[in-house]
Design a binder for these strands. Structure first.
Length: 580
DNA sequence: GCCGTTTTCGGCCCGACTGTTTTCAGTCG
């Protein structure tokens, strides 16, 4: 039982209680506990195996009751309370409340009045026109339900961050056509650089709110206007992406930006803190004297300042201890783009890249880098025209020649002799030791046999690390966001072994991968394992993807000292040599 | 169910929009 499954049970308990009509604060507690569990870097299983119940104490939002249920889930694989609630109502009701516009209250009414117990039943009733006859419902609600069901059935609600970027740019450009605009800013999970986002939230300050709204709902990509008010509107695009807009006064811009950036958990914690200080935070500002006196709101710094905190970077706002750290003055000094000195995962035309070594190098120089590791595939990755030993040797000569040329031209830049060597199913490496020993940098990755059991896969990767030949484990979980689940691997064990052998783990910045993810980075930081933020570029354009890697690293609280390729060349080479 | 700068009980984040209703509950973020 992993953290994600435990979180899911708590989310379901919250949903079930909500449909049943339970105490709202208890419901919130379960949801809060679920979010805490979800964001925990270490697995509860490990914590419990280590120290028993004591290992689970001190987790925020987890008290006597939820702790007991965690232990129950870990030891029995189930939770009696969860089962009991499920026994009181059909499981399909959990799907019903995923329909936009249909919440727990209305779902409960439909169950009571019409005996509807799942999505299909809901669809049949709506299409038969039965719902409009129920008190509190009408034709509009019925139509909304039909649309909502279609949406639930056809769309994955989460979009890869990189897929939303073009929309953000398009809307920003479009909205700026309205006269009188002073600020336009994306907020929400987009601004926190979450790997997937459910919707795009845009904030605007403008003298004429109505003009902004009228213009906004006419954007050509819009498929449906969900709501349109004086200061707030919501639309859904043809792609299924939801876009929300809010228009605000200048003096509320900071508090609105803070509020809509979230996360929800962060905001709840911040507002509780404000309340304890006799203040009230809303999107319109920070107020005291029962909301009478405006204290702050024009910018985010003042909002945090009003509750005695320094500004907290958006990537940290997940209620994973950032408020406490801010209070103690111990916020991390997060890694920045300017700290990155080179890229340690780059392909060339020699395997499946699209450009030659010197073209990739030139692009890397334009990024301001000191170095780039040439990490073409090894022969086991046949589809990528992976290199055998002879071709690797030829490439080593080519890199030497390239570096000689750099020296003659008095350029500081260096290409590193490297490889992305395949970790084969038995854990052996796809180049012989004598070849790997000639290299400056060895990235080792799994590209096949994804379906192994946790124990097998963990042993496979650990065996590779134990050769002492590996500098970096490439894309350590193999996941592709929204496309392929991570393979089953115990990263805590892999990290412990990597630490012993002087190896780093990669944070693959390719926006489909982001692997390690943010929570894994937290774990690496805790364990003192270095992380290499690399792009896995197959083209000169991919080098820019480093931004996704950096912001994911920031979400994982990583600092310059934690990141391998934030080291200058000389220091980097020293570290790379220490493998063993 | 959780938690403590109103501490072991009594609170718990805040507001916009919609649809259905005659003043507001439900939903959403």
């Amino acid at each position: 039982m992993e953290n994600a499954e435990i979180a899911r049970v708590f989310f379901e308990i919250a949903d079930l209680l909500e449909i049943k009509g339970g105490d709202t604060f208890r419901i919130r507690s379960y949801r809060n506990a679920a979010m805490v569990v979800e964001g925990l870097p270490e697995s509860l299983k490990t914590l419990y195996a280590g120290d028993g119940e004591d290992g689970l104490k001190g987790l925020p939002g987890i008290g006597e009751s939820t702790r007991g249920k965690i232990i129950e889930l870990l030891t029995t694989g189930g939770c009696a309370y969860h089962r009991e609630l499920l026994g009181e109502m059909p499981h399909g009701m959990l799907d019903m409340i995923k329909v936009s516009g249909l919440g727990p209250k209305k779902a409960a009414v439909l169950h009571k009045e019409l005996g509807i117990s799942d999505l299909d039943g809901l669809e049949r009733a709506a299409e038969a026109g039965l719902i409009r006859g129920i008190r509190g419902f009408g034709e509009a609600t019925e139509r909304k339900i039909i649309r909502g069901i279609r949406e639930v059935k056809t769309r994955s609600r989460q979009f890869k961050l990189s897929a939303v970027v073009p929309y953000e740019r398009s809307f920003t450009r479009y909205i700026s056509e309205v006269p009188g605009i002073t600020e336009i800013a994306p907020s929400g999970s987009y601004r926190r650089w979450k790997e997937t986002v459910g919707d795009l939230d845009i904030l605007v300050t403008c003298s004429d709110a109505r003009a902004v709204m009228d213009h906004f709902v006419r954007h050509p990509d819009i498929a449906e206007v969900v709501s349109k008010g004086e200061t707030k509107s919501t639309v859904v695009l043809a792609s299924g992406l939801q876009v929300d807009i809010r228009v605000l006064d200048k003096r509320s811009f900071g508090s609105a930006l803070q509020y809509f950036t979230g996360s929800k958990a962060h905001n709840v914690a911040l507002r509780e803190r404000a309340r304890r200080m006799g203040l009230k935070i809303s999107e319109y500002g920070v107020f005291r004297e029962k909301g009478e006196v405006w204290v702050a709101g024009e910018n985010e710094e003042d909002v945090y300042g009003a509750v005695g905190l320094p500004w907290i970077p958006p990537e940290l706002r997940e209620n994973r201890g950032e408020i406490e750290a801010a209070e103690e003055g111990s916020l991390p000094r997060l890694i920045e783009r300017a700290d990155i000195k080179g890229d340690l995962h780059v392909h060339t035309k020699e395997s499946d890249g699209a450009y030659m070594l010197d073209q990739m190098a030139e692009a890397a120089m334009k990024m301001g880098y000191e170095y780039m590791a040439v990490t073409d595939h090894s022969k086991a990755v046949g589809i990528a025209r992976g290199l055998d030993e002879a071709r690797l040797n030829a490439q080593i000569r080519a890199v030497d020649e390239f570096n000689d040329r750099m020296k003659r031209q008095r350029k500081r830049f260096r290409a590193l002799k490297a490889t992305e060597v395949d970790i084969k199913a038995d854990g052996s490496l796809d180049h012989p030791e004598r070849a790997l020993k000639k290299l400056d940098c060895v990235v080792a990755s799994v590209h096949s046999g994804f379906r192994m059991e946790t124990k097998e896969m963990t042993a496979r990767v650990i065996k590779a690390v134990r050769t002492g030949l590996v500098n970096i484990i490439g894309h350590p979980t193999g996941r592709l966001i929204n496309e392929r689940e991570p393979y089953r691997i115990d990263l805590e064990k892999v990290m412990d072994e990597a630490k012993r052998h002087g190896a780093a783990l990669e944070l693959n910045a390719y926006p489909d991968r982001l692997d390690l993810n943010d929570v894994h980075c937290l774990l690496a930081r805790q364990k003192g394992v270095m992380v290499a933020v690399s792009t896995d570029s197959h083209s000169i354009h991919h080098l820019e993807n480093i931004a996704y890697g950096i912001h994911t690293a920031r979400r994982g609280w990583l600092e310059k000292k934690d990141v391998l390729n934030a080291k200058p060349l000389k220091e980097l080479l020293k570290i790379l040599k220490r493998r063993g």
